[in-house]
Amino acid sequence: MTEQPEGRKVRTLDARSLRGIAHPLRMRLLGSLRIDGPATASQLAARFGESSGATSYHLRQLAAHGFVEDAPEHGKGRERWWRAAHETTVFNDRLARDADPVVRGAAALYLQHVAAFHAEGLSTWVGTSHEWPEEWQSSADISDHTMRLTPELASELDQKVHQLIESYRELAPADDDPKAELVRIHTHVFPTRRPD
Rank of each mutant, 00 (worst) to 15 (best):
T40E: 03
S143N: 06
R19N: 03
R28K: 12
A15G: 06
W81K: 02
L157C: 08
S167Y: 10
A64D: 15
R97I: 00
H162L: 11
I142G: 00
D14T: 05
V68Y: 01
G7S: 11
H65V: 05
V114L: 03
Q159A: 15
A54N: 14
T124G: 14
W125D: 01
L30H: 01
T187R: 08
P101K: 04
T89P: 03
Y110F: 15
R34V: 07
T187N: 08
H162V: 00
V183M: 10
R34C: 09
Y168F: 14
T146S: 05
T124Y: 14
S167I: 08
F67P: 05
H58F: 11
Q61R: 13
S167G: 07
P101M: 08
R83S: 03
R94L: 07
H162R: 10
T40F: 02
D70T: 10
K9N: 00
F91T: 08
S143P: 00
D141C: 05
S32V: 01
A41P: 10
R8F: 10
A71Y: 11
E79D: 14
S129E: 15
V161Y: 11
L95V: 05
T124E: 14
D36G: 12
R193E: 09
H113P: 02
A63F: 05
D100Q: 10
L171E: 13
E79R: 15
V10G: 02
Q137F: 01
Y110G: 02
E166R: 10
R97G: 00
A96R: 04
L33A: 04
L157T: 11
A71C: 12
I142S: 08
E135A: 09
R194V: 01
A39R: 09
L111D: 03
T55Q: 09
S129Q: 15
F48G: 02
E79C: 07
A99T: 10
T192N: 03
K76F: 14
T89Q: 04
R28T: 04
E156W: 11
H58G: 00
V102D: 13
H113S: 02
